[in-house]
């Protein structure tokens, strides 16, 4: 455990001594903040217009009109940004030849993977927590439901954790950071969109729906916590970490 912690510290130092982590976090807060602002403004215009219409105004709900789309959009932004966060994790070690130190220190591959994974989760947590000040601002003005907002946050964290695990795997495949980022972004995007197939064909419908990020995230963004969604994210992250482990084990024979 101490070894894992040593790697976490090292990775965080590297993250925060280069501009990467700052730029990614700042962009995340800026873009999601911008979206949130537009959605809240739009909602207030709708509320004024709906003032004369009791039926419509009774159906206006901040959770449904602001928070749910906000989390869905934040998820897309994570899809764009997280591959950049994870691309260097193993690729850069190889390029800088530091892997020759890392893999000759008394560390197990599991410790190395966990250390790097946890460090990236910390950065993800920082990014997400940084949105709290504005995302909770409407609570001072009106009374949205709290629970769906919290599940939305849980959702983007788990989704991000799954993305990071896959990004770690992509980074273990190459010594080129760009290749790692493009690969993880491309595959994650494909997995996001794969549910489209279910519109045109019933082939493997249940399976495709299950492996698509979109269908799982939709529930959480709306504030619905379904165990099967949680299990999906966690197993996806686990598979990503396991594949990384397999790559590290195989690479010992080839370097």
């Amino acid at each position: 455990m101490r070894n894992v912690w040593a790697i976490v510290k090292k990775e965080l130092k590297i993250y925060f001594s280069s501009p990467t982590a700052y730029i990614i976090s700042a962009l995340f807060v800026l873009i999601t903040g911008f979206m949130f602002y537009v959605m809240v403004s739009n909602f207030s215009i709708l509320s004024v217009q709906a003032g004369n219409n009791p039926y419509f105004s009774s159906r206006l709900n901040l959770n449904q009109y602001v928070y749910s789309p906000f989390f869905s959009n934040a998820a897309i932004i994570l899809l764009l940004l997280l591959p950049v966060l994870t691309m260097r994790l193993f690729a850069e070690e190889k390029r800088q030849h530091t892997d020759e130190l890392l893999f000759t220190l008394p560390l197990t591959n599991t410790q190395i993977i966990l250390g790097k994974y946890i460090a990236s989760l910390v950065v993800l947590l920082v990014m997400i927590v940084a949105t709290v000040p504005y995302a909770f601002y409407p609570f001072f003005l009106t009374k949205p439901e709290l629970a769906p907002v919290l599940t939305g946050y849980l959702g983007i964290f788990l989704l991000g954790a799954a993305f990071i695990a896959f990004g770690l795997f992509a980074s273990s495949l190459t010594e080129n950071q760009i290749v790692a980022a493009v690969f993880s972004f491309g595959i994650l995007l494909l997995l996001w969109l794969i549910y489209w197939l279910t519109y045109v064909s019933s082939f493997l419908k249940g399976f495709l729906k299950y492996i698509s990020f979109f269908s799982h995230f939709d529930n959480l963004a709306r504030g619905v916590v379904d165990t099967s969604d949680l299990v999906f994210y966690i197993s996806f992250a686990f598979v990503g970490l396991f594949l990384t482990y397999a790559i590290l084990e195989v690479r010992r024979w080839w370097r």
């Binding site: 030849h97 020759e100 000759t104």
Partner: peptide, 12 residues
């Protein structure tokens, strides 16, 4: 162990 290329993290 000191490898052929010293394994150093330039950011640290």
């Amino acid at each position: 162990y000191l490898p052929e290329v010293p394994p150093l993290y330039p950011e640290l």
